[in-house]
Each structure stands twice: as structure tokens, then as C-alpha cells.
Design a protein around this nucleic acid. Structure first.
Length: 801
DNA sequence: AGCACGCCGACT
DNA sequence: GTCGGCGTGCTC
């Protein structure tokens, strides 16, 4: 019976979110399998598509078109990952094809190219103007100038030219020229006796060919080992002694060799953790662990030994780390333990390297994968363990469709494979820690630093006092004195500027008061366009204050500053200091990040000044002082996670001081010295912070007590965006229970981005069985709504700005 | 997404 | 009268 392929076409729209039926032509019969990429005619053009099923019949009434070509010899997504794609699509409200593209390496995303060519109808004059080469030319409306495009389109209407489509598969396997003997060894030996005396090189090669077996060897290697030139090899091939073959090779992203390491001896806490995780690995139990360990408590060693257990049982392991922590030092540590079994996936690799690593994993040649967010889709078979380090990091959440959280995907895969998931952090997210408290996750605590180094002394500097003393809002006298002392002692300093919070909010420089919403306990954001302060949660609006409502000081103003400005100010104060700046600007170029760190590591600078990115995972033994210039900025953000983020950041950055023999010191400059997030970060008291913050969340009906979902509408016309949001609120109110709290609509913090206005609604709820259906209904409705109107749904937002 | 179809205003 | 502007709807 004729087969029919169910194909998801690569056209991300609501109408094409279901598979379309295509006839499988005879010559492709039994070649097409679910999980393969194909090209199909769609409308009046060719598109690429993805086969999700094969069946005998279709419920489509019309005439089926045939699949044009198959792009893969084997499925690129196995059954597990296809199921995962469907789950992702329903839970994140993203298109199925978008989910599939997200899971595949970039190179497997086929592109469509258009070509235009003359027909017989065309006149000679037209041919010479538009087709100087006389034949088909690429037709990219973006690249050609307008006159040419309109001219060509006119010709097309007249039937004088036709447009053809070509789906181009970028997936390129890198090959090397390789040599394999074409004759049996005995025959070669026979020939060897007959070659001319004055052809010693040919004899040499013949001898070599006899020894090499039937596996192809790279031509360069043959030339080297047989000590002959490429010309001699060519002659041999021409004479039929050897054959040329294309040898498939991987673009190896890490050429440099690593020193093998042995497992370290574990302390009692680490032992308990490894044993618990190993037991779950062995029992193939989908158990979730929270490994809570302070900086330097040896979490990584726990991960590595747990991975070893999975490998010992013939299973594979996945280790996720935040992109920013995916440094060569980090990956080398894993590679030196597990050698060639390790594949690394991250954005620093070229597309080709990513694809090759992906293929090594898919073929089972790599059994340990280390990577950032998207590595959670690594095509590992037979997973035995998933680890997610620094699980609280917000970079695990993708900000565009599909808006997935790698943690949720990891837990899904854990359930699928029956394998444990280990979430690790010194400062777990409230959600995770709360689940551990409820007994849903098993909590494993590493309270001791491996070398018993004392934690650094943390000083809180009250900037209100400092401001009075020297009138400088950036550097306190205490911090400057401390920096000078390190310069004198040839030690190094890390200074962090909290740049998140560049958004303009109002804070009093005398008392630290931040203007907040009376309804939401969230800071108000300044809107220059309307000259007012707005709450992005409930829409409350009030005038911009001239004096501080708390202490009546006139020093209430916007808060926010940049690294360049700070660098200049610091250099003026400490002319002798060698300052290295690290921020988004100075690390934009590839490899710049690593180069700066290397420079600092070899003490080519005294002070490293940077943004958040310096808080994570740096380990410089000579750094004995860490300064946080503005601890408050994140606190001022209109986000209920502001305290949590501040606490996590301060705790992390504090861990950067004095990790070696020299004791460390930390200075936190703040206008809110009494804020619990800052106070508790000073004491490195996560538990106390957890309890306090949980109380705050309970008071405000925020996660983890409530779930939150966010809907955003954007349109060039502000009225249209706002109106759409009001209609959505009406749908929500009707479809949801009275217990659901619908906040908004309100304009977003940056209301106008790329000439579009953004309005949002936040839903807080505990138990809404109808929510999925209502959101789905809104998504359906969004399709036939106004042109240019975009509705996004985020079922678990991390950012409320 | 990209294209055809179809309905309106500014030209030959 | 027609060319071509964009708004609307469909693609197995």
C-alpha cells in the first residue's frame, strides 16, 4: 500500500502547527521514517519539513502532493526527543516546528534559496539587462536593489521568467582525503618486485600499503608514515594499487591534550551525596536531588563521581552549566576525568563543531555531555544521570520561543529515562528549595569548604554615610583604603558593578528610600514619556517625586551608572592602578572574555572591574578583595525576584575573595544596609534568607506559593496593543476561577522597543485546571487578530520587565 | 513565511 | 480603461 508521510512544514504559524499529509513516491518508499527532514512542495514553493509519522491513509480530502526529497539517511530526532518536542510545544505554547528546530543543531536547519531564470518568451534586450550571464541567477529580494526586483517581478507576471526553489541542507560532514589499499597484500608484494629500481619511493609506498589493513588512512598520514610525497600516492592511485576515499572526520573543538586525573578523596558530606545519587542511578529511579553546597564545598567532585557511576553501569550522563561558567578550565576538569567520552556543546563552537559534537553524541561515541541551556536536548541514549549546576541561574530560561526552562526539560528527561536529576547550587532558587522542604526533592547539604578555608569577612558600607563624608556616590573611603592596601601588597581586586537595574527608578540618596507601589510592594519605574512613575504589575501611576516621601530630602533621583564612567573615576583616584574592564562591550568579540581573564590571572592588572559576569566561577588565588559598588540596583527592579537575585549575586561574588592561602575581604556598598537580602548575604546565611523570603512571597501571593503566567501584546500602535490586552483580560476573567489574580494590563518597563509598544498581564494562580485551555484559546484567537499584533505567552516567566 | 487573489486609487 | 498598491486567506 502506498505510504503517506505526516509532515510538519517549516512554516511557523498557527494554521500549519499540525502535520500535513504528503504522498511518498515509489522511489522513496521505505526510505522515509519519522524524525527525518524532507523537502516538500507547499503552496507555490518548496519548503523543508519534518516527518512526524507514516500512515496508510490521510484525513485530507484533496489530492496529496509527493515528498520531493529526503534530506537524511537516518532520523535526526529519535522517539524520545520527538515526544519531548510535542510536550514542549503544548507546555510553552510554541509551534511544534519551532520546538524541533530548537532541539537540533543549527546546521540541520535547512534554508530555502530562490533562483530566477529566463523563459523562451523573454526578449533579447531584457535578457541582457537582467541576465548578464545569460542563465539563472539567485533571487534574493533582500540583496537585490528595488528596481531589479520590481523589474524581475514584472517579467514574471508576463511569464518571461520563472522562479524556482531549492532547499539547501547546510549539514556538511567534513572529510579528509584518505587512502585504502585496492589490492590484497600478496598482490601488492608481487607488484613491488616489478617496479623499476629508479622508483624507490613507489616501492616504499607499496610496502606501506601491505601493512596498513583495509581501514582508510588519511592521505597526509600515509605520506608521513611511508615518507613519500603526495605525487607518489597519486601515481599509486592512478595505477590502481590504492584507492582514494573520503574519510569522515570530526572538527575537534579541543585539540589540546589534557592531563588525566583520578577521583579525589571525598569528605563525609560528599560521600553521603555521591552514595545517595549513585544509589538512584543504579536503581534507575527518577529521583530529584538538591545538592546545596557553599562555594568551595566540592560540588563538582560529587558530580564527577556520580557521573562515573552512571558510566560504570553503561549509561550516559548530561551535565548542564550556565553559559558563563562554561570555561575551558571547567570543561577540562570533566575531560581530564572522562577523556574522549566527553562532548562539549556551547555557543562558542563554530556551527560545524557543534554539529560534529552532536553527531558524536547521537552515535554513542560521546557518553558524557557538558553544555549550556540547549545541551539539555543532547541526543544521548540511555541517560543515567542529569546534573544541573547553579540551578538558580536565570540563563537556563530561554527568553524567546519556545520559552522553556532547561530545568523542566531535564526533569522530563529524567522521568523518561528513569534517571536521577541533580540540581546544584550554593543559593538554590526559592522554587527548588521549597520543593526540597516539601520532600519532593532529596536535599543533600555540603556545608563545609573542602580545604576548610574560612569564608571571607564581609563588610557592609553604608553609602548614605559615605556620601555625607566625601560626596561620592561611587566609592566609599573604606573601599578605597582597602583597594590601596591590596595595591601596596601586590594583591588583586575584583570590583563588581551591578548594571542590571539601569532602568530608571527613584531612590533617595539620603535615606535609601525607593519609591514603591502602594498595592504591590514593587518599585515604581520612571516613564520619561508620560512624566510619571508607574507600577508594572497593577498599573498604579503617580507623579515623579521632587522630595523623598520618607525623609523629605531633595536628593531623590534616578539610579544607574555604567562601567566606563566608573573606570574613569577609579583611574583618577588611583592613577597607579592597572584596571581591566570586563562588560558586555569589552567582551563582545570572540575569545575576548577568555583573554581578559588570562591577563588578570597572570597579574597584568591589579583591578578587574566588571558586571555580573565576573561573579560566576572565577577563581584567582591572588584576589583578596572583592568590592560590590552598588548592591542595591537589582533591589530596585520591579520584579518580585529582586531580593532573591541580589542575595544570590552578593553571595556568589563574595565567594570570589580569598580562596587560597590569603584570607579574603568583601565590601558591599549599599544605600539599603538594613535590607534583609544584604544583611543575610553578609552572613552568607542562605537558610535564614530562604525563610525570610518565603514569608515575603507568602504575603504577596508570589511564587512558589502561587504560579505566575505572563501574557504580552505588542504592536506599533499603542492603542492596538492595549486594546488587545484588555480583550485578553476579559477572556481570562471569564475562563478562570475567581481565585486567579489577574494583574494589569500595564505597559512594560520599556514600553516601546523597536517601534513597538508592549503591554502585559500577569496571572497569579494556585490551581487553575482551565488555564491551559484558556491560554490555548487566546493563542488561537491571536492568529486572526490584527496584523502586526504579536501575543506572547510565558507560562513561567523569569523576568517581569 | 511567501504567494495569489482581489479590490481600490493614480496613471497611460 | 490598466497598473500596481496592499489587505486577506491558504498552503497537504
Amino acid at each position: 500500500m502506498a505510504q503517506i508521510g505526516q509532515v510538519l512544514v517549516d512554516v511557523p504559524t498557527m494554521q500549519t502547527n499540525e502535520p500535513y499529509s504528503y504522498a511518498i513516491p515509489d522511489q522513496l518508499q521505505d526510505q522515509v521514517e519519522p524524525g527525518m527532514r524532507v523537502t516538500v512542495p507547499f503552496g507555490h514553493r518548496m519548503v523543508s519539513g519534518f516527518v512526524v509519522g507514516i500512515s496508510d491513509e490521510s484525513d485530507y480530502d484533496g489530492q496529496l502532493k509527493p515528498i520531493q526529497a529526503v534530506l537524511d539517511l537516518a532520523p535526526v530526532l529519535n522517539r524520545e526527543l520527538r515526544q519531548l518536542a510535542d510536550w514542549l510545544a503544548t507546555t510553552t505554547f510554541a509551534f511544534r516546528i519551532t520546538c524541533i528546530q530548537t532541539m537540533l543543531p543549527n546546521l540541520l536547519k535547512a534554508s530555502v534559496e530562490r533562483f530566477i531564470q529566463p523563459t523562451d518568451e523573454i526578449s533579447a534586450a531584457e535578457r541582457t539587462t537582467y541576465f548578464p550571464d545569460g542563465t539563472a541567477r539567485p533571487f534574493d529580494t533582500e540583496k537585490l536593489d528595488e528596481a531589479t526586483v520590481s523589474g524581475l517581478l514584472k517579467l514574471r507576471r508576463a511569464g518571461k521568467v520563472t522562479v524556482t526553489y531549492q532547499v539547501k541542507d547546510k549539514a556538511a560532514v567534513k572529510t579528509l582525503a584518505a587512502i585504502v589499499p585496492a589490492l590484497p597484500a600478496t598482490k601488492l608484494q608481487e607488484i613491488a618486485t616489478t617496479v623499476a629500481k629508479r622508483a624507490p619511493k613507489q616501492a616504499q609506498l607499496l610496502t606501506y600499503l601491505q601493512t596498513m589493513g583495509d581501514q582508510p588512512v588519511a592521505q597526509t598520514q600515509v605520506a608521513h608514515e611511508a615518507a613519500v610525497s603526495a605525487e607518489v600516492i597519486r601515481t599509486a592511485v592512478a595505477k590502481g594499487w590504492a584507492a582514494k576515499k573520503a574519510l569522515e572526520v570530526y572538527r575537534d573543538p579541543f585539540q589540546r591534550p589534557v592531563q588525566p586525573t583520578q577521583p579525589l578523596t571525598l569528605n563525609a558530606e560528599q560521600r553521603v551525596a555521591v552514595d545517595a545519587i549513585s544509589a538512584a542511578v543504579t536503581a534507575q529511579r527518577a529521583q530529584t536531588f538538591l545538592v546545596e553546597g557553599v562555594t568551595g564545598s566540592g560540588k563538582t567532585e560529587v558530580y564527577l563521581q556520580s557521573i562515573a557511576q552512571a558510566l560504570k553501569l553503561g549509561r550516559t550522563a548530561l551535565m548542564l552549566v550556565p553559559e558563563i561558567a562554561l570555561t575551558p578550565q571547567m570543561t577540562n576538569r570533566v575531560k581530564s576525568r572522562f577523556g574522549h567520552a566527553v562532548a562539549v556543546l556551547h555557543s562558542g563552537l563554530s556551527k560545524g563543531e557543534q554539529y560534529d559534537e552532536w553527531r558524536r553524541i547521537d552515535r554513542g561515541e560521546a557518553t558524557v555531555v557538558v553544555g549550556a541551556r540547549s545541551a539539555v536536548f543532547a541526543p544521548l541514549h540511555n541517560l543515567g544521570l542529569i546534573i544541573m549546576d547553579e540551578e538558580h541561574e536565570s540563563s537556563y530560561k530561554q527568553d524567546e520561543n519556545p520559552r522553556y526552562h532547561a530545568r523542566d526539560v531535564a526533569l522530563w528527561r529524567g522521568r523518561y529515562h528513569g534517571c536521577p536529576v541533580v540540581l546544584g547550587s550554593a543559593t538554590p532558587s526559592l522554587e527548588t528549595r521549597a520543593r526540597a522542604a516539601k520532600g519532593l526533592y532529596t536535599r543533600l547539604v555540603l556545608a563545609h569548604r573542602v580545604n576548610d578555608h574560612p569564608l571571607p569577612t564581609v563588610h557592609i558600607v553604608d553609602m548614605r554615610e559615605a556620601l555625607k563624608a566625601n560626596g561620592d556616590g561611587d566609592f566609599s573611603p573604606d573601599l578605597l583604603t582597602a583597594i590601596q592596601a591590596r595595591l601596596d601588597r601586590q594583591e588583586q581586586v575584583v570590583l563588581m558593578l551591578n548594571r542590571r537595574g539601569y532602568s530608571s527608578f527613584m531612590m533617595c540618596r539620603d535615606c535609601g528610600f525607593v519609591l514603591k507601589c502602594p498595592n504591590c510592594d514593587i518599585s515604581l519605574t520612571l516613564h520619561v514619556d508620560t512624566h510619571s512613575m508607574k507600577c508594572h504589575y497593577c498599573g498604579h501611576e503617580e507623579a515623579i517625586p521632587r522630595v523623598c516621601p520618607n525623609c523629605h530630602s531633595r536628593k531623590i533621583r534616578y539610579y544607574g551608572t555604567g562601567t566606563q564612567k566608573i573606570e574613569k573615576a577609579l583611574q583618577e583616584r588611583l592613577p597607579a592602578a592597572r584596571i581591566l574592564r570586563m562588560d558586555v562591550d569589552s567582551t563582545r568579540r570572540k575569545g575576548a572574555h577568555e583573554r581578559i581573564l588570562k591577563q588578570f590571572g597572570s597579574h597584568q592588572a591589579d583591578i578587574l572591574l566588571g558586571t555580573q559576569m565576573i561573579a560566576k566561577g572565577l577563581d584567582f588565588p591572588n584576589v583578596t578583595l572583592v568590592g560590590v559598588l552598588n548592591a542595591d540596583t537589582a533591589l530596585g527592579l520591579p520584579d518580585f525576584r529582586a531580593s532573591e537575585r541580589t542575595f544570590q549575586l552578593l553571595t556568589q561574588v563574595s565567594g570570589r575573595a580569598g580562596r587560597a592561602e590569603k584570607p579574603g575581604e568583601v565590601f558591599i556598598q549599599t544605600f539599603n544596609p538594613d535590607h534583609y537580602a544584604i544583611q543575610l548575604a553578609q552572613r552568607q546565611d542562605y537558610e535564614r534568607f530562604f525563610v525570610t523570603e518565603m514569608h515575603m512571597r507568602h504575603q504577596g501571593n508570589y511564587p512558589p506559593y502561587y504560579f505566575a503566567a505572563q501574557l504580552t501584546a505588542s504592536h506599533e500602535d499603542e492603542q492596538v496593543a492595549a486594546k488587545a490586552m484588555y480583550q485578553i483580560v476579559a477572556v481570562l476573567k471569564q475562563g478562570l476561577s475567581p481565585n486567579a489574580i489577574v494583574l494589569g494590563p500595564t505597559p512594560k518597563a520599556i514600553a516601546r522597543v523597536k517601534r513597538k509598544y508592549y503591554y502585559q498581564v500577569v496571572i497569579k494562580y494556585k490551581h487553575e485546571p482551565q488555564l491551559q485551555a484558556v491560554l490555548e484559546q487566546i493563542r488561537q484567537g491571536a492568529q486572526q487578530a490584527q496584523r502586526g499584533l504579536t501575543i506572547t505567552i510565558d507560562p513561567e516567566p523569569m523576568n517581569f520587565m
